[in-house]
Amino acid sequence: MSDGRIFIEPVPTAETEAFWAGTAEGRFLVRRCRSCGKAHWYPRTICPFCSSDETEWVEGTGEGTIYSFSIMRRAKPNYVMAYVTLTEGPTMMTNIVDCDPESLRIGDAVRVTYVKTAEGRALPMFTPKSEASA
């Protein structure tokens, strides 16, 4: 799954600690504003749309579509950087894994999967729905 890649460890902050605790349990949390109803990425306590501090965690669907992507050819092994638009609305930077990079297309439906780092954190990545085993 990670093909021997070494990942830069995520740095949880007060705003994102719960997000990373969630991924460790296989939960994909999305931050949403109770005031204006919009979800955003990256997770913040203050809503970037209406400046309300009434934001909350909601269970994300973990599903989205590929907005765009790039195959990192100079890295060995190659990996796929992607910008994925979540069904909740926001678009996030991530990777597409467990896929044939050559067959990926903008607009492909993807679902979240988790890849462990050396320190045991779980990075949310995405895999094409058509090839997903789970």
Binding site: R5, I8, Y42, Y79
Partner: peptide, 9 residues
């Protein structure tokens, strides 16, 4: 910071 773990280097 948020993107580095995904190899956005």
């Amino acid at each position: 910071i948020y993107h580095a773990p995904w190899g956005f280097t």
